[in-house]
Simulated scan of single mutants.
Amino acid sequence: MTTSPRLSVLDLVPVRSGQSSSQAIAASLDLVRLADRLGFTRYWFAEHHNMPAVAASAPPVMIAAAATVTERIRVGSGGVMLPNHAPLVVAEQFAVLEAMAPGRVDLGIGRAPGSDPVVTALLRSSGPTSDVDRFPQHVQDIRSLMSAEGASVRLTSGQVYDVHATPAAESVPTVWLLGSSDYSARLAAELGLPYVFANHFSGQGIDEILALYRDGYRPSPEHPAPETFLTVNVSVAPTLAEARARALPQARMMARLRSGKPLGAQETVEDAASTPLDGLTSQMADEMLDRWIVDEPQAAARRVRELAARHGVDEVMVVPVAASRADESLDATPGRTQTLELLADALA
């Protein structure tokens, strides 16, 4: 029998129709408590901006909240979109998080902006932040700033000025590079860092990109061997029909996003079933459902094992995409809760 991989969670903090952001965040914090009790390895929060259906715009804030309501699970970012932020700000935020939850913090770093060009410009309107072209250097700067040695800056006067991320924690967060192309995979290999392939966003070229990472890996003191896992969108329910019905609202939202159509809060299961899309957008949504792991528990568990074995990973990070029904509590996320419970039980 194929060994079951470790399970982790990536949370976009979905906001459903009629739900406030406060209710959506409360539901996600309940979900991270559940993942902690179920034995999941890590729980990461994404960074997206100006999306009505997503409340995950500030990963460090969500990580801090999650750290206070959990005991053992690792908490982190999936990821901090570095071009939006100054490296010193990121280093200090995660130094604080590490001081709050020693040994439990992951700093996942991405290179994409996490939004459209207008919002990206607004994020950077207060001054220069992390230039995309300087991404490799800024990753190194963050690692240096969080280290016990800190970083040194040479001023125009010639004076060397020492800078440390404060408060100084007794340990440092684990830095991961995230991506769906070969750029971050090559950089992670060069720097000797763990790497995550964003399979939930784009499954194109996965084997080639993982091979580039593994074959080109340069061991580092902290990470002597390459370390990687995959993300995947998942909806699990007692029946395939229910799993598919609960995944449809998210698939429809992603199809609208990729076809440039207006976005709103996440639909309920009933709204998604009763509101037709145009032919091309509907086809895109159906194709997504076919690529995702949308199934009853035993079949979903088998597919997760097969995914991990096929790509040589021992951890899978699930994005629970199961939406809510109209009569379900706005303070809870029953579809996502069911997904984690059923999948964990089937893989046990």
Rank of each mutant, 00 (worst) to 15 (best):
M51Q: 15
M51V: 15
P52G: 13
P52S: 15
V54W: 08
V54Y: 05
V54P: 03
A55K: 11
A55H: 12
A56F: 07
A56E: 03
A56M: 05
A56S: 15
A56Y: 01
S57P: 08
S57V: 04
A58G: 04
A58V: 10
P59N: 00
P59E: 00
P59T: 00
P60Q: 03
V61C: 11
M62C: 11
M62V: 04
M62N: 14
I63M: 04
I63K: 00
I63C: 05
A64H: 03
A64W: 02
A65L: 14
A65V: 10
A66V: 01
A66R: 04
A67W: 06
A67M: 05
A67R: 02
T68A: 15
T68H: 14
V69P: 11
T70M: 07
T70Q: 06
T70S: 12
E71C: 02
E71L: 01
R72Y: 01
I73H: 06
I73L: 04
R74T: 06
R74E: 08
V75N: 02
G76P: 00
G76H: 00
G76W: 00
G76I: 03
G78C: 03
G78Y: 01
G78A: 13
G79V: 13
V80C: 04
V80A: 05
V80H: 01
V80I: 14
M81L: 15
L82F: 10
L82C: 12
L82H: 11
L82P: 11
L82V: 14
P83N: 06
P83F: 06
P83K: 05
N84V: 05
H85S: 11
A86S: 14
P87G: 09
P87C: 08
L88I: 12
L88K: 01
V89T: 10
V89D: 12
V90I: 11
V90Q: 11
A91W: 05
A91S: 09
A91L: 07
E92K: 08
E92I: 06
E92F: 09
Q93P: 05
Q93V: 00
F94N: 01
F94S: 05
F94Q: 02
F94V: 02
A95G: 07
A95L: 03
A95K: 02
A95H: 02
V96E: 05
V96H: 09
L97V: 03
L97W: 00
L97F: 00
L97Y: 02
L97T: 02
L97D: 02
E98T: 12
E98F: 05
A99N: 09
A99E: 10
A99I: 02
M100D: 09
A101E: 07
P102W: 06
P102L: 09
R104Y: 04
R104Q: 07
V105C: 03
V105Q: 03
D106R: 00
L107M: 04
I109T: 05
I109F: 03
R111M: 14
R111F: 12
R111I: 15
A112H: 10
A112F: 11
P113A: 08
G114N: 03
S115Q: 11
S115A: 13
S115L: 07
D116H: 14
D116P: 12
P117T: 09
V119G: 00
V119E: 10
V119Y: 09
V119P: 00
A121P: 10
A121Q: 15
A121F: 09
L122F: 14
